[in-house]
């Protein structure tokens, strides 16, 4: 052991420059993949907050549901064998997004809508209750142990770029999250329904007076948020190859942090916050210490909030007149 460490240390010294570059690019590509995942989850928090001014505490568990549904489709139903790995993952992501959207719809109907007119604290308690219900349901269905994706399930294609080797999966995940975000951005900014979503985020009563069914828009927000969170769940599953029923807690917390960093309620803010958080975490793990990466992430959050209390893009949150 000690000899090996010594040896690698010597090698590092001799090839110092190239290694540094390699570490940087490896961490950078890893940061893109994780950042995309955080961004997708963060969007769910920010979209619901945008229309309801409410933190959906059960959102992390919708993400977990996505991961487990992905496992079911890919491993248990063996979709991977029939469609080829990348195709299967894409198909499964779409399937899971559909089911997760349905779960998001049910969540809003059962846990939030009955409390729409009651005070905020009730909704928070209900949200935490829903979180526990979802988490425990997953545990009862799949068991409390860590589920590991079979080795063949995790595509391990390596691509060579400028003489450095990268797992293709990173770019695939990053690309998928960028596509989803572009789709969302287009939907929100260029369609009639998207404009209605922005209108509801600005002024609910004025939107009602325009004939917009605000309840329907709120349902839609939960569905889109859950679908994106579910997609992120599948991605984490295939990237790290293992999932547990409690994973939604830490991913939820990080993505929530990302949403705050970007300015909660602000859609581009959640995207930016997620990417930034993934990148900071990945770089901190390599250059400072893997053990301290979470502490550093929160340090960055604190610094951002001190400098810009509304988050990076926060001032563009719809202001009320």
């Amino acid at each position: 052991m000690i000899v090996a460490e010594r040896l690698s240390w010597v090698l590092k010294l001799r090839r110092g420059h190239k290694l540094n570059m390699e570490v940087f690019f490896q961490q950078f590509s890893n940061g893109l993949a994780i950042g995309g995942i955080y961004a997708l989850i963060a969007l769910g928090y920010t979209m619901v907050y945008g229309v309801l001014r409410l933190i959906n505490f059960a959102h992390g568990d919708l993400f977990t549901s996505g991961a487990f549904l992905g496992y079911t489709f890919l491993v248990s139903l063996a979709l991977g064998q029939s469609a080829g790995t990348v195709g299967a993952i894409l198909l499964v992501v779409l399937l899971v997004m559909g089911v997760a959207a349905f779960l998001g719809y049910v969540l809003e109907r059962c846990a939030y809508r009955p409390l729409r007119r009651s005070n905020r604290l009730n909704a928070v308690v209900s949200a935490i209750g829903a979180s526990i219900v979802i988490q425990n349901s997953i545990m009862l269905i799949y068991g409390p142990q860590v589920l590991v994706f079979p080795a063949g399930m995790k595509p391990n294609v390596i691509v060579e770029i400028f003489g450095l080797n990268f797992p293709l999966m990173r770019f695939f995940l990053f690309g998928a999250s960028v596509m989803l975000m572009l789709g969302l951005y287009f939907f929100i900014n260029r369609t009639r329904l998207g404009t209605a979503i922005r209108a509801v985020a600005i002024d609910q009563d004025a939107s009602r007076l325009m004939g917009i069914d605000v309840s329907q828009i709120i349902s839609l927000m939960f569905m889109i948020g859950a679908a994106l969170g579910g997609a992120a769940g599948v991605m984490v599953g295939v990237y790290y190859g293992q999932i547990t029923f409690t994973m939604g807690w830490i991913y939820g917390l990080k993505a929530f942090t990302a949403a705050i960093m970007g300015g909660i309620g602000n859609i581009p803010g959640a995207m930016l916050g997620g990417m930034l958080l993934g990148m900071v975490e990945s770089m901190a793990a390599a250059y400072i210490s893997a053990g301290w990466k979470d502490a550093i992430t929160f340090l960055v959050l604190i610094v951002i909030l001190i400098c810009r209390p509304t988050g990076l893009l926060g001032e563009r949150v719809a202001e009320k007149i």
Binding site: R198, A199, I202, D203, D205, A206, L209, A318, E319, I321
Partner: peptide
């Protein structure tokens, strides 16, 4: 409505 309530950021 009273106060116009136009969607300011649209």
């Amino acid at each position: 409505p009273e106060g116009r309530r136009v969607f300011a950021t649209l």
